[in-house]
Write a protein that binds this DNA or RNA. Sequence first.
DNA 1: ATCCAATATAGCCCTATGGTTATATAGCTA
DNA 2: TAGCTATATAACCATAGGGCTATATTGGAT
Lengths: 116, 116
Amino acid sequence: MDDRLDAIFSALSDPTRRAILGRLAHGKATVAELADPFKLSQPAISKHLKVLEQAGLIRSGREANSRPRVLEPDALKTIADWIADYRRFWDQSFDRLDDYLSKVQGYENDKSRDRH
Amino acid sequence: MDDRLDAIFSALSDPTRRAILGRLAHGKATVAELADPFKLSQPAISKHLKVLEQAGLIRSGREANSRPRVLEPDALKTIADWIADYRRFWDQSFDRLDDYLSKVQGYENDKSRDRH
DNA sequence: ATCCAATATAGCCCTATGGTTATATAGCTA
DNA sequence: TAGCTATATAACCATAGGGCTATATTGGAT
């Protein structure tokens, strides 16, 4: 699991790759469409896409001639969960909100819900 | 701001550094204490600490002979905020929860609260 | 003043990363 | 089948990253 976190954080550490994810948040896109905003060569973009795919952040489809990419949210959820363990360090209202929700219909009384 | 995200994600992409943060989540610690669990040399740990500090994830204190480190939560909040923009992709209950909270005393009717 | 303990810095090595150009592959289209 | 389009792969280069050992620095203790 450490390896998975390594790969995800590492993939996200590049601004080009984050921009690509940003584009994919609006829907699937071809390699050409993803490459368009950048001054990089097409192979450079393909490399970035490979990094994102190996980190599990995106997935490749196949559609006629092209291989459209889509977002794969699980990887982002993985690191969101990791970060959630630290949430109490910055969010004063975290515990209060957590207590509140634990009393509300439809939410379990489980203080660790959002922490692990 | 891109540079800041680069540095934070990059710092988090190393398992040793994440383990160091995990240790610091229990309270401040000296370099020697932080180095203890690892088979790495002391300079290697100092390098990791420098990376974490330059990313804004930790801060150095000064106490007699030693320079204890403490967690600096803002950097983690920065990327948590970044990830929050993607939360809707994996959390079905996100919108429902958001709607719910918007009706509750003490929470504004602001759907973008947790998204930006 | 000296010495020891804690930590930082320098210099070196090897591998990983991000970019490039050139070329290969796969699927339409004529 | 020939050629065009979309994308992937190969080979190469330069820089960054993470490890090491050796050494410098800083502060407390004797």
